[in-house]
């Protein structure tokens, strides 16, 4: 039902929403995933320390 010209598989791709991390990553904290950044894993974003 899409009018895009680029080709893609016919079946609907599964959304990334609610794709939970592997249990091992949940426990270890340090993700083995190549696209994982240490600081992005669990909500620790640099630069949010309050400066009064």
């Amino acid at each position: 039902p899409k009018s895009r010209s680029r080709s893609r598989s016919k079946s609907k791709r599964v959304s990334g929403f609610d794709m939970a991390p592997p249990a091992s990553e949940m426990l270890a904290g340090a993700g083995a995933g190549a696209t994982e950044n240490a600081w992005s894993s669990f909500g620790q974003i640099p630069g949010t320390t309050p400066t009064i």
């Binding site: 609610d18 794709m19 939970a20 991390p21 994982e36 992005s40 669990f42 974003i45």
Partner: peptide, 10 residues
């Protein structure tokens, strides 16, 4: 509290 592609949504 939900996830996207294995990462928490902030």
């Amino acid at each position: 509290g939900r996830f996207y592609a294995g990462r928490p949504i902030i």
